[in-house]
């Protein structure tokens, strides 16, 4: 149906992003709802996670089944630094978590990028599961299946007492700010020379080698970069959720960013972001109604795979492209 090397460039520019961020920023003053702030915060965090994942999947063509390992490394680093070293400052914890997650991705990625396609995917899965087993086994330091409770850190030196207030106002804007920075950074990276190389690797990695570019090395860089974003997401998630556990390292959780990228559109920059919001909102309201949420999600996955392979955003941008009669366009 669609040509294999189809990829999408922006046309509407920065406008949708500016509108989006302003809209998100207006949520606390307009609604004051802690629950909504929590949900949106979660959606943003998962969007960062999915963007990191999609860096490898949509842009480099590498499908990882074990990405929860780096998100989880970020979460656990945050929780353990806070618990054992009594660091209260969010900034320091954030830095620590991102560094540890990136190192994890660097080590695992170094091994995995030597393999292609299904072997790559299975190897990432295996490493993810080994990390899970370690987390569960070393229950004396990681809390095992009980997980670790994460208290409220200080933001820029300010301490907070009420968790509800913390989630709705200061931390919410903090998350939003970091998200904006992530979007800008990722945008610059993906539209640069580096981003073009990644897409070339996705389309035909053998040819890239013949052009004199070390595809293995660039895949590794992409892996490390992906780890950075996953670490950021993990560091934001830990204080937001207040509790982290081995389920955040389990491969079932690795399927979440894949699902998000697929729904939103993995060939579009905005895809993972929109996909994340859809995912969080649908998941929360479906689980409130029925215990058969897997049926619902499974049907969505099948539907999207068969009919909307480019996801919501991909579909919209293709439609826009046809309207504007240009060959490659996007949001």
């Amino acid at each position: 149906m669609f040509p294999k090397s189809f990829h999408i460039k922006p046309i509407l520019g920065l406008l949708p992003y500016i509108i989006g961020i302003v809209a998100l920023g207006l949520i606390p003053p307009l609604t004051g709802s802690t629950y909504l702030a929590y949900l949106v915060g979660l959606a943003i965090v998962l969007a960062i996670f999915a963007m990191g994942f999609n860096l490898l999947f949509g842009y480099t063509g590498l499908l990882s089944f074990g990405h929860a390992a780096y998100f989880g490394a970020g979460c656990y680093a945050f929780a353990m630094l806070m618990k054992y070293y009594h660091i209260q400052s969010f900034e320091l914890l954030f830095l620590g978590s991102v560094i540890i997650a990136t190192l994890t991705a660097a080590v695992i990625g170094y091994v995995c990028v030597r393999y292609i396609k299904i072997y790559f995917s299975l190897l990432t899965l295996a490493f993810g599961q080994v990390e899970y087993a370690l987390v569960v086994k070393l229950y004396n330091i990681t809390g095992g299946t009980d997980g670790i409770r994460v208290m409220m850190p200080t933001l820029l030196g300010f301490t907070f007492k009420d968790k509800g207030f913390f989630v709705t106002w200061p931390f919410y804007y903090y998350i939003l700010a970091i998200f904006t920075i992530c979007v800008i950074v990722l945008w610059i990276i993906l539209n640069s020379h580096f981003g073009k190389i990644l897409q070339a690797i996705r389309d035909n990695d053998v040819r890239v080698n013949f052009l004199g570019v070390s595809e293995r090395r660039y895949k590794w860089y992409a892996f490390i970069l992906s780890g950075v974003f996953c670490g950021v997401a993990g560091a934001l998630f830990a204080p937001l959720n207040g509790h982290i556990g081995p389920e955040h390292v389990y491969w079932g959780f690795s399927a979440t960013p894949l699902f998000i990228a697929l729904i939103g559109g993995h060939r579009v920059f905005l895809g993972p972001i929109i996909g994340s919001f859809i995912y969080v909102l649908v998941r929360h309201y479906v689980t409130a109604f029925t215990i058969y949420w897997e049926l619902f999600f499974g049907a969505i996955v099948i539907l999207f795979t068969l009919l909307f392979p480019y996801g919501v955003c991909g579909g919209i941008s293709l439609w826009l492209a046809r309207r504007m009669k240009s060959a490659k366009t996007s949001l």
Binding site: G242, H248, W293
Partner: peptide
């Protein structure tokens, strides 16, 4: 149901209260 992932339990818990 408790047999859903822990963070969904927690989110549902919050929802029940708020």
């Amino acid at each position: 149901d408790e047999a859903i992932p822990v963070e969904e339990c927690v989110a549902d818990f919050r929802r029940l209260g708020l």
